[in-house]
Design a protein around this nucleic acid. Structure first.
Lengths: 236, 236
DNA sequence: TGTCACCTCGCCATTTCTGGGGAGGTTGAA
DNA sequence: TTCAACCTCCCCAGAAATGGCGAGGTGACA
């Protein structure tokens, strides 16, 4: 391996711009001795943010085609907590085989390992390394690097979140009872059930829902629950 | 520090029962040289799973009182990607001060650091260490241990997920139109507005909402939107 | 001592959603 | 080809939520 990981992470925590992050991505690629290293965040309404070492052509093609929807790596990571080895994924299906061919043409390696990362408000990102080594070499290499990759993934995402300024500004915090009320609705209760569970009258419950909605600037109850969930005001 | 972290993590990856995980939690506590170490998985519906070193009395009191809803540590971690220092939280409020007093009486330390952990399907957990050191000592201790704590948090959650067999969530994926429909509702539209935006009749929209609700096993529209959001099926 | 946020309760009319039926066309995979 | 899943449209009646009008008590903070 190249430099010491700890010093790389220290450097990483100092970056404050996308360009600097991009440079650190390249350094991490060298450190992990892989051909490509990719950070890819899909938070927000379709907007994606990436810092990677693929060719620009492939990236714009990927985005314009909406490949995030069919990419087996993305789909696999969405349902996994652990890092995902690309060979363990399902690469069958017409769209998928077409995607795979294009990816290989674009220089993406056949071997790969992707770390799923999840942040507040439903943020989701991938941190992937990819290469063209043989199976055995790749397995051994990843076996040695897995824990380091987890840490790198964490800190890259942390910097990316900070650079993008994803500090959700919440006008006024909800009161405990307002949180209770929205929580009951979020788990499927109707108002009589929720009121009974909270041991208050249905009308009082309505007052909480209304005040929560006003604070959140929501247009209706469903909107209020969705906003509160997205902002991390309710337990998932 | 006690044993080498890597060997502790290796041990950890071999556990297959709650009891064994509990034993490893105690070992990790000794390794990190703290009074208490807590792994705590929570959901809005109220199910909780914990492996920790607090007294059994405090745990059952915490659960029976539904303290997960008011605990500032939980609420802070919900909105953060980075580990959260307990001193940076807001401990004011009537219920909160009462909770704090009871916690201190139960032997919970005044110092603490909690790592938020997020898994697929909206899973959310905390990995916390707590102690009664002085501020300066605590800060220095945590500064040295932070990266190790991140790794420990990851692997404890990984084992907990596997032991509980939560790998099979989300039976059937939502169709594109179902996602569209729920997304419109999540941003506050009512049915006529959403139907117009999607350029379909209101009746058709209802079909999507109904089928999405059936797939998600939701009891009403608000529940369906909340579930889909929590499971990361909608963009926030 | 006053203010302000919070918690609790009630009624009315109107709008909106929900549950139960239908029907038919398209598309992709086995 | 056949089948399943998807997309689109329609009606009706009862259930539920919403909007707007109230009221009073508590505790914290300045």
């Amino acid at each position: 391996m190249g430099d010491d990981l700890n010093s790389l992470l220290d450097r990483l925590q100092g970056v404050t711009s996308r360009e600097a992050l991009q440079a650190e991505i390249a350094r991490l690629r060298d450190h992990f001795e892989v051909e490509h290293l990719v950070y890819h965040s899909v938070s927000g309404a379709g907007e994606q943010y990436a810092a990677l070492t693929y060719s620009q052509d492939w990236v714009s093609h990927y985005v314009s085609q909406g490949y995030a929807r069919i990419d087996p790596v993305v789909r696999g990571c969405l349902r996994s907590f652990e890092p995902v080895d690309w060979r363990a994924l399902d690469w069958t299906g017409r769209q998928v085989t077409g995607f795979l061919d294009e990816a290989l043409d674009a220089g993406v390696g056949r071997q790969g390992l992707s770390v799923p990362i999840r942040g507040p408000g439903g943020q989701f990102a991938l941190f992937s390394v990819s290469d063209r080594r043989q199976d055995v070499l790749w397995q051994a290499h990843m076996g040695r690097s897995q824990r380091d990759l987890l840490l790198a993934a964490h800190f890259v995402n942390q910097r990316a979140l900070e650079i993008d300024g994803r500090t959700t500004l919440c006008a006024r915090a909800l009161s405990p009872r307002e949180i209770d009320a929205l929580t009951m609705l979020a788990v499927g209760m109707n108002r009589p059930q929720a009121a009974e569970r909270l041991a208050i009258s249905e009308h009082t419950l309505r007052v909480y829902i209304e005040s929560a909605r006003a604070k959140l600037g929501a247009l209706n109850t469903t909107h209020a629950v969705a906003s509160a969930l997205s902002q991390g005001l309710l337990l998932p």
